[in-house]
């Protein structure tokens, strides 16, 4: 079965991420990519993951694009989920000090800000 973008977003709103696991090579990837990135198979099983992981890198935006003026400054981070698959999204932190690299974050939903992440309280390292 293939995952529509609508279904992918619905799971983000439950704090979860839909992945594909390749039946041929076991590779895991986001369910927005339709062939296996490693072996190109389209025999893919849908796997649901809790949207939790660690910060790989991030920025704090001070000059926002349209629609984000009310949030600035705010963060955007690349996150390695506990499955090893990466995702990225908006995160409501005001300063680089508030988001150490490798700190734990989780997905809380999808709205007008896009994919929304949240830093786990007092969970740095």
């Amino acid at each position: 079965m293939s995952v529509s973008r609508e279904e992918f977003i619905a799971k983000l709103n439950e704090g979860k991420v839909l992945l594909y696991r390749c039946r041929r090579c076991s590779n895991l990837q986001l369910a927005t990519i339709v062939f296996c990135r490693r072996c190109n198979s389209d025999a893919l099983d849908v796997v649901e993951e809790k949207g939790e992981g660690r910060v790989v890198t991030f920025t704090i935006l001070y000059v926002p694009p349209e629609g984000y003026e009310g949030y600035a400054p705010y963060g955007w981070a690349v996150v390695r989920l506990d499955s090893g698959v990466n995702i990225s999204g908006f995160i409501d932190v005001k300063s680089a000090k508030d988001l150490p690299l490798d700190s734990r974050v989780r997905i809380v939903g999808y709205d007008g800000r896009g994919i929304v992440l949240k830093a786990e309280d007092g969970s740095s390292k």
């Binding site: 890198t57 920025t59 935006l61 908006f90 800000r113 896009g114």
Partner: peptide
């Protein structure tokens, strides 16, 4: 756009993320 621009990041922000790494 789904993962990047549409989640609030600008091009300076993307390159800033590369810079931090």
């Amino acid at each position: 756009f789904f993962y990047e621009g549409g989640s609030g990041v600008s091009f300076p922000g993307l390159f800033a993320s590369m810079a931090r790494a």
